[in-house]
């Protein structure tokens, strides 16, 4: 056999191999292969996604694989899923970040490039301070800061990040936004900085600080959202304390626009069964997020409302592009 013949043969073989297993899958038997769920962040986002994919795999009868596609504040994962075929085999574990990255000009498309499947969880951010500050609630904190007149250092994970936007909205409502210096930390280091007293306050996730509030090193002066927090039951929400603000981090599943409705319905049903399962609820308490299932239609409203809210807030903060 000479060389050219051989190449032709192997090429032919390759083509035969590739074409054979491809068949047009009928949507009724969805899913026939693993469903890929792109996860945009580490930390709790990744943990929830891993838990969810585990239970959803059992519900769907086909593996749901959570794949980390981090970077660009979520832009990398969103653009991957947006660019994949709308057949229900590539979905994204989304969050408020779809609205923030879009309005900050990092992503050329917004939430309407996806069809919502279901909301999965809500994380309520809390404002944490060092116990030595003697601040116990938001009003007292606002008064103390105004009285002192110095700028307080507030830790955020990055400019334009959720923690930044949420803190800015809260301090605006508290009327002390002029007295705040934001310090970017990247991910995860804020509790140490709070403990050491290098920053005065930081928006934190309940799971990050519950150990410290229990040991008495940190105090949660208020929750930014209104949902109940299982791991920090005593923390009052900002709304209860008289500040008109309600910001939480919702997470859910979305598929590329154009995904067939019956496929979305199947995913939605699997998500519902997973989120309401006992295993998922138990794990959520340990990790520090609240399971909060919403069906596709209601989830769509949440996303759309949020989009308006963040567009507004980002413009106000001078972060919108």
């Amino acid at each position: 056999m000479d060389f050219t013949k051989f190449t032709k043969l192997s090429l032919g073989l390759a083509i035969a191999l590739t074409v054979a297993p491809v068949s047009v899958q009928a949507q009724s038997d969805y899913p026939t292969r693993p469903v890929e769920m792109s996860v945009l962040f580490g930390g709790t986002a990744n943990t929830i996604a891993q838990l969810l994919s585990e239970t959803m795999s059992q519900q769907l009868g086909s593996p749901v694989v959570s794949i980390a596609r981090t970077g660009g504040g979520g832009a990398i994962g969103y653009s991957h899923v947006q660019g994949s075929r709308p057949d229900g085999y590539s979905v994204v574990f989304n969050s408020n970040s779809i609205n923030t990255v879009h309005h900050m000009g990092m992503l050329p498309f917004g939430y309407d490039a996806f069809v919502p499947v279901a909301q999965i969880s809500v994380e309520v951010p809390v404002m944490a301070v060092n116990a030595n500050s003697n601040w116990t609630d938001l009003t007292q904190m606002a008064e103390a800061v105004s009285a002192e007149g110095r700028r307080i250092n507030v830790g955020i994970s990055g400019r334009g990040s959720f923690t930044h936007i949420a803190s800015a909205a809260l301090f605006d409502a508290m009327g002390i936004s002029e007295l705040v210096n934001y310090v970017s930390y990247g991910e995860g280091n804020a509790p140490i900085e709070l403990l050491a007293g290098r920053i005065d306050a930081a928006v934190q996730w309940p799971g990050q600080i519950s150990s410290y509030t229990e040991s008495g090193d940190l105090v949660a002066v208020g929750a930014l959202g209104t949902n109940e927090i299982y791991s920090l039951p005593d923390v009052q929400s900002a709304k209860e304390q008289g500040y008109d603000i309600d910001i939480s981090m919702w997470r859910g599943i979305a598929a590329p626009a154009g995904t067939p409705p019956e496929v979305v319905a199947k995913l939605e049903e699997a998500a519902r069964a997973s989120v309401t399962s006992e295993a998922f609820i138990n794990a959520s308490r340990n990790v520090g997020f609240e399971p909060a299932f919403l069906p596709a239609a209601e989830f769509a409203e949440v996303i759309a409302e949020d989009d308006v809210f963040y567009a507004d807030l980002l413009t106000k903060l001078g972060l919108a592009q």
Binding site: L17, T18, V19, P21, V22, R33, E36, I67, S84, R85
Partner: peptide
């Protein structure tokens, strides 16, 4: 390890 399955043809 989750490697790509292919977008044009899946195998």
């Amino acid at each position: 390890v989750y490697m790509p399955l292919g977008t044009m043809i899946t195998f």
